Amino acid sequence: MSQRANGSGFATGGPEFPDLPEATVARLPEYLRALHNLADDDQDTVSSEGLAAAAGVNSAKLRKDLSHLGSYGTRGVGYDVGLLIEQIEQVLGLHESRAVALVGIGNLGHALAGYAGFATRGFHIAALFDADPSRVGERVGGMSVRDIADVEAVVDAERISIGVIATPAHAAQRVADRLVAAGVTSILNFAPCVLVVPDGVDVRKVDLAIELQILSFHEHRKSALTALPAKAVGQ
């Protein structure tokens, strides 16, 4: 039996949201950011080419990604910006503000705790933790830093399912173990290490040094190409 799209753009008779490829999931936040910028500029509709350019992808890839949501746009008009924002936010689970625990209140932790952009993207820092007694009780971003020993009780009380680790690498695995034991099922890891977690726990790794090393490769490659004789480059 065929399925048809309901008013929210999702197929009826199926799951609450589609089973999306990981690459598509990774691009949806970029589309959402671009759409919010368009909405802020009072733009009601956008073509696939315009949205793709704003998100930094090609239009064919964007159309395929959005087709997974049941969104195909209108020929000659494009996509309804407001409706597409609602669809993507629903798929990403941003219709409710998700509580986040931040562990590690060093320089990076301070910056993350004070970042106002989380609130506008569907998240709020519900608790701050550190193992250093000198940090416990410190006020950061309007919140008091708690002892890591309290993580189980706080995660339960605040209904926290996402943890952010901003500790040194040597402490990250112990912190991850405590978060998982407390009931956290998703972790964003800023520590430069690989975490081992049970099945059912999702980890995203952010390593700024790796990103810089990748950019260094591109700089090295551009320098090498510039140094080649013109004939060699053209071959």
Rank of each mutant, 00 (worst) to 15 (best):
V145L: 07
G183V: 08
Q43K: 11
T120A: 14
G200H: 08
F123G: 05
R33V: 13
P198R: 08
R27L: 08
T24N: 09
S223T: 13
T74V: 15
K231R: 13
H218F: 14
G106L: 03
A26F: 12
A230M: 07
Y31I: 01
N107V: 14
G109M: 05
A131L: 07
R33Q: 14
I210R: 12
D40H: 11
T226E: 15
S2C: 06
V154G: 04
T24I: 06
P198W: 08
L112E: 04
Q213Y: 13
Y79N: 00
S186R: 12
Q90Y: 13
P133E: 03
V196A: 14
A131H: 10
H170E: 13
L179R: 09
T120W: 04
G106P: 05
A166Q: 05
L62N: 01
I162L: 15
L66E: 01
A182Y: 03
D40C: 06
V103E: 05
Q43N: 04
L51D: 03
S2P: 15
E219D: 13
R146Q: 14
N6R: 10
L208F: 12
F123V: 05
H220W: 15
A172S: 02
R135H: 12
T24F: 12
R98E: 11
N37T: 10
D202S: 14
T226K: 15
P18M: 06
G142Q: 02
D40G: 14
V91G: 01
H220G: 14
V164A: 03
G7M: 06
S47V: 05
